[in-house]
């Protein structure tokens, strides 16, 4: 028997949220929900894991700070030490106070940009990518629930209608 995709279209975020909770409580797995705006608590209701992007950002920031200090040590202390206005430049520790601003800036630069690049890669977002949303109304005011079903779809469809879906459709999964 082939896998079918069932879509339930909702026109209100609270109705959708209750629907997600009701259908999950019956033991069904919700594959995707498309919404026009971020809904707080939807990720928990669907059972999604926490995102680890913040940890990534912290690691990138640490790399940035290390890179900044290494760069300034290499340029000012190791490769070409100069006496500029009598400021101490013989050891890193002497010169460190003057390096704080740039260390901070490069930390932010690395943490911000590399996190965003990771986010774009993880979400497969790039210029010119086609949208994977099956219904263009989901960027306006509609909410779409997607469930993959093996076998009989009528139970899921009834559940969606019961929880307030305004449109329920199904299609064959393309392989």
């Amino acid at each position: 028997m082939s896998t079918k995709i069932v879509y339930g279209l909702y026109d209100d975020d609270d109705v959708l949220m209750d629907g997600v909770k009701a259908i999950r409580s019956k033991g069904h797995h919700i594959d995707e929900v498309y919404t026009p705006f971020p809904m707080h608590g939807l990720d928990h209701a669907m059972g999604l894991k926490e995102s680890r992007l913040a940890i990534c950002s912290f690691i990138y920031g640490v790399i940035g700070a290390a890179f900044a200090i290494w760069m300034m040590w290499y340029i000012m202390i190791y490769n070409w030490p100069q006496n500029i206005g009598g400021k101490p430049n013989f050891t890193l520790i002497d010169n460190l106070p003057a390096f704080i601003p740039i260390t901070f800036e490069i930390t932010v630069l690395f943490a911000g940009h590399l996190m965003v690049i990771t986010y774009l890669i993880r979400c497969k977002l790039y210029p010119g990518a086609k949208t994977s949303s099956p219904d263009p109304r989901t960027t306006d005011d509609k909410f779409l629930m997607e469930i993959h079903v093996n076998g009989d779809t009528s139970e899921i469809k009834d559940l969606m209608r019961e929880t307030g879906a305004i449109e329920v459709t199904e299609k064959e999964e393309n392989h």
């Binding site: 995707e32 929900v33 498309y34 919404t35 026009p36 705006f37 971020p38 809904m39 939807l42 990720d43 669907m46 999604l48 995102s51 992007l53 913040a54 950002s57 943490a111 911000g112 996190m115 965003v116 986010y119 774009l120 993880r122 979400c123 497969k124 977002l125 790039y126 210029p127 010119g128 990518a129 086609k130 949208t131 994977s132 949303s133 989901t138 960027t139």
Partner: peptide, 21 residues
């Protein structure tokens, strides 16, 4: 629009990176 489709997981990450940024 980079192919944005409004998936729940994407919104979750979106909110997180907004907060971190």
């Amino acid at each position: 629009s980079f192919g944005w489709s409004g998936k729940a997981k994407h919104w979750q990450r979106f909110e997180l990176i907004s907060l971190v940024l």
